[in-house]
Design a protein around this nucleic acid. Sequence first.
DNA 1: CGGGCACTTGATAGTAATCAAGTCCGGTGG
DNA 2: CCACCGGACTTGATTACTATCAAGTGCCCG
Lengths: 237, 237
Amino acid sequence: MNKTICGCNKCNHKLCTQRVSIFSSLNIEQLEKVGELINHKEYKKGDLLIMEGESSESLVIINEGQVKAFKTTQDGREQILYIFSEGDFFGERNLLRDFASPYSVEALEETHVCLIHKSDFQILVKSFPDIAVKIMEELCQRLDRLEHALETMGARTVEARVSSVILEFAEKYGKEHPKGILIELPLSREGIANYIGLTRETVSRKMSLLQSEGILEMIGNKKILLLDRVALEKNIE
Amino acid sequence: MNKTICGCNKCNHKLCTQRVSIFSSLNIEQLEKVGELINHKEYKKGDLLIMEGESSESLVIINEGQVKAFKTTQDGREQILYIFSEGDFFGERNLLRDFASPYSVEALEETHVCLIHKSDFQILVKSFPDIAVKIMEELCQRLDRLEHALETMGARTVEARVSSVILEFAEKYGKEHPKGILIELPLSREGIANYIGLTRETVSRKMSLLQSEGILEMIGNKKILLLDRVALEKNIE
DNA sequence: CGGGCACTTGATAGTAATCAAGTCCGGTGG
DNA sequence: CCACCGGACTTGATTACTATCAAGTGCCCG
């Protein structure tokens, strides 16, 4: 493990840069060069990585942990836009021009990040144009997710919204389980509510309803066991 | 005017390619080469340019006219995601990999488009890496718009949503007028409703309310005169 | 084991969807 | 140019649902 390249003690003898899709077209030698440009930072649960409106000088890549990106609406509500996990990045708006961050980002748990300064990044893109293409792909995926989210938010029934978010989490965080899919929720009830534009009480009620229908089982506050995925999918229709 | 490069009779002696930001880094000579790869197509109001789920072989650039991009939800509703006008493009998801279109696109009026086949486009990006960067910028703008839309959809009050969409249209389609800002609406009441996740009746009611408050004046069904922009902005808060 | 916070559950009120008439606009044909 | 027709829009009454307010319960961490 090369301390100069990667000072974090979580890399498991791999370069952080290897974990990130936007550098996947580079070879080991090139990755090492990129590694030299990287700084590291750690955050505790609840820490703010950036505030909406601030302008950051760097691309931020999540190396470990999880964060939420959200806008604070004028009526005080928090609209969560993304949950970024290992390998995701943000701050891309700043790289080319000088934009303020469109959202705040807060750590949902202990989180380690890699930082690349925008001037370094610009040089990088010149040398390896494939990186721009990779970022393009990643941005397209993000568009997909937002377009889907917009469709969800427009859904008439609240059942559909709740079902939709549970299915999304099942995709992303679900693990095999003899009785179904075990989901470790990244957000609290209030977080889920802020993700789909409802109140925490309504989310609570609808999840209880789904449990009484035998579609899922709540295990404590932070896990749910999805028993009947097909029924949830029907809810969306 | 070079018929070989651009067969449409609306170019006014300019290359279509010049109107599009993604090619703005190219010089005239390069633009002519790009022009040779382009095909044209025309649509009438109500025509479908592409259906959700279909896979297209081309990047589509709007040369003249206006289209709406929307998803059809399972309960039959239409969630409008974008309104694309002159200079906008869609179909970018297909360029790199083979994705189905995430939305349907329908002409809102007589519309002329330029088509670039994805194999040609891939060669183009290799030759002119700046194009990827330009597309990246454009995609970032689209992310901004969607993130803002999501914030709007999450808004507690319906007044805020309606006000927000009117302000958006004022930005995009508004023209100076002695009494305020004259807005030519791109969508019907039902279209607006499908854009912000409400019913046409509710949109109608809220717009009547705004008129009675002296904030705006409806001129027929397709125009509104925004009298008090500041009041609308306060509505969002 | 205890305390605080998140979550659940209940009652009430406000608001938007729905259902249902009417009215107006804009285009077409005489 | 005017009259007519159909579709889009407005307005009204009712219903259904979710936000809000409020009280309890249970989970999780120290």
